[in-house]
Design a protein around this nucleic acid. Sequence first.
DNA 1: TAGATTGTTAATCGATTAACAATC
DNA 2: TAGATTGTTAATCGATTAACAATC
Lengths: 211, 211
Amino acid sequence: MAGSVLLPKPCLMRLPHYYRRLLQAMHEGQSIISSEELGEEAGVPAAQARKDLSYLGEFGRPGVGYDVYELAAHLEKVLGLNEPKKAILIGVGNLGRALASYPGFARYRLQIAAAFDVDPSKIGQRIGSIPVLPLEELETFIRQKDVRMAILAVPAPQAQSIADRLSAAGIRLIWNFAPVSLRVPEGVKVFNEDLAARLATLSFYLVQHSS
Amino acid sequence: MAGSVLLPKPCLMRLPHYYRRLLQAMHEGQSIISSEELGEEAGVPAAQARKDLSYLGEFGRPGVGYDVYELAAHLEKVLGLNEPKKAILIGVGNLGRALASYPGFARYRLQIAAAFDVDPSKIGQRIGSIPVLPLEELETFIRQKDVRMAILAVPAPQAQSIADRLSAAGIRLIWNFAPVSLRVPEGVKVFNEDLAARLATLSFYLVQHSS
DNA sequence: TAGATTGTTAATCGATTAACAATC
DNA sequence: TAGATTGTTAATCGATTAACAATC
């Protein structure tokens, strides 16, 4: 294992926000930052920010604050933001296309090596520099390029069968945008970005607060 | 207030998954379902599913299970899935376009009344049936159509100033896809769909489990 | 030194889970 | 009746927050 830092999940979710605040501080030429300022960005009290950062080691100086560059560098290391991360994209619909060209991804060194689709009219196209390959080549590609991560943006009915193929071919992490719960074997991690489910919870708040 | 059901947030997040399982049950002609089956879909134990549902009232029959149709109907009501939900979309880039044509939204009765952009070449276009209007007309449109919800899919640097305008014009709920923390006045709720931040946490797991 | 801010402990809060009487 | 499954209580677990000695 690389760096066996074990973090509470809510803490991990906040680290990118602290990091973003650090980038802003750098941009503004600020070299020291307080837990108060970091917490504000993540929407938590200063004590929470300090506790979160304390999981990573001791970086702050009492009475002073945190060194912006030092902390940013450490967060980059812990989150692996500087490591190139190879991934493939499955499903070149509207959402798949949008993800393939999402500018935020390259900044964190996500490299989408190829996209896959069943539609013959899409095969051979390029989205930016990403080639669209036929779904039949999925397994070969994964094995040859040793890809560990897949972004799944196919329609719900196809998602499970593709997830099966991905798992069997050696994918360890599936970022799933299809509105379904996937079953995957031990050792494969699924992260769901379920926009339909999210909409349903938004709906609750909308209806709740209306008249 | 409409239906003042107060729910723990994690519970609310699971309700759409229970609902989805109920739809599947209907599709398969199953008329009774157990907390075990519902929990499985959401990835939680049966006891959790029962506890979640108990916040909504008593729907199950001991020794039998839950009536699929009755429970589905109640979840629809609580989540407001049958209420039409008017929204506007701001930002007609790749992601905005994908959201405008996302098929899962219409199913939960989200109606995107209009999209807005600054780019003159986009104005006057239609995405499906959704017209693209100039950003100048934002406030007028919101007030005239009494829109409460906005989907924000503009580049990060523009997000805060648009959020200010949305809040001032009467928007109560912002579904924010820009990778920034928005500051909004009391009474406006923001839900973040921060793909860049999410990628950073995925990155953590990838690096963690590699070699 | 006086003022500021950290790292950490202990108290609080809230969600999850196990267990079981009540019910079909 | 015997077997199944609910609704709910109580125990457990984990995260958040307050408070403060230690440090600059």
